[in-house]
């Protein structure tokens, strides 16, 4: 902490400053994120899709086993995730790419020279937005679906499989946000980052899993969305089908956040701003 005396640029009082590290970078990033209208437009559309899609497509339940029903109900709540995750990715990507596309990065990294702290703060903000959308969206969807989640299709928080679906889904949201923010640092381009995420989330899995090539199938199986489904899979895997076990699925899913984040950290520290 340092304090200056009142002088030429301080009419009246002294200017008190504090160490520029992660905690204050986090506050700064929160101000940056919430003072852009685009952030709230993305959050609005994400919630609209999150709640709207299940309401439109979820029918009356046909399951009779409450254990199966609870898992199905949780899946129903997260029906829109494929689309919502794209919006979460756009939000996460813009947190980092906009720094480079607008030139704000020069202000950001002169204010906080610890580049790792800035990236960690951005990843935290991206994760909090992702979790916020997922939690608010899930609760709102639960109420919006109302009677469709009753009887055998009721949620049951004593059901370990159902809780696992919830937890893995939330992890998937955080992973997508961190992945997008990290890719944004690596590519420094909004379009490039968003295209990459759309390809990984929506386009590549379908193609890679259907072509008759083991290598392509394996690459398809480790795409984040596919790994997330593997993590909550309860069906036995056919011998000959390339699909990750639940444990491996969860590990691969988390790796999709950790590895790009570490790569972004290394690149951010090494490159000129």
């Amino acid at each position: 902490m340092s304090a200056a005396t009142p002088t030429d640029t301080t009419p009246g009082t002294e200017v008190v400053t504090h160490r520029a590290g992660y905690a204050r970078a986090l506050r700064s990033e929160w101000i940056k994120a919430r003072t852009l209208r685009s952030t709230w437009i993305l959050v609005g559309f994400a919630l609209l899709a999150f709640i709207g899609l299940p309401v439109l497509v979820t029918g009356e339940t046909t399951v009779t086993d409450p254990a199966e029903g609870a898992v199905a109900a949780m899946h129903a709540i997260f029906t829109a995730s494929d689309f919502v995750l794209i919006l979460v990715a756009v939000l996460g990507a813009l947190l980092t790419t906009s720094e480079f596309t607008t030139g704000m990065a020069r202000n950001t990294f002169t204010a906080t020279p610890k580049r790792g702290a800035v990236l960690a703060a951005k990843a935290t903000i991206a994760s909090l937005f992702a979790l916020g959308i997922a939690v608010v969206g899930a609760v709102a969807t639960f109420f919006a679906l109302g009677d469709k989640l009753s009887g055998a299709a009721s949620l049951d928080f004593g059901n370990a499989e159902m809780v696992k679906v919830l937890v893995v889904s939330l992890i998937g949201y955080v992973v997508t946000a961190v992945l997008a923010a990290s890719l944004g640092v690596l590519l420094r381009s909004s379009v490039g980052t968003i295209f990459t995420i759309v390809a990984m989330q929506l386009i590549l899995p379908g193609i890679l899993l259907s072509v008759p090539s083991d290598i392509a199938n394996w690459v398809g199986a480790i795409m984040p969305g596919v790994a997330a489904s593997a993590a909550v899979n309860t069906e036995p895997i056919d011998p000959g089908t390339i699909f990750l076990t639940p444990g491996a699925g969860l590990a691969v899913l988390i790796a999709w956040a950790v590895l790009p984040f570490l790569a972004a950290m290394a690149v951010l520290k090494a490159r000129d701003i």
Binding site: V16, R24, T35, T102, G103
Partner: peptide, 27 residues
């Protein structure tokens, strides 16, 4: 330092821009 007058997010208000920079030092 002033090194690039255009190095500001164009859709953020001047005051919020400065608040974001100030927050890094608890100003």
């Amino acid at each position: 330092a002033l090194i690039d007058a255009k190095g500001v997010h164009p859709r953020r208000s001047a005051r919020q821009h400065l608040r974001a920079v100030a927050a890094t030092h608890g100003i």
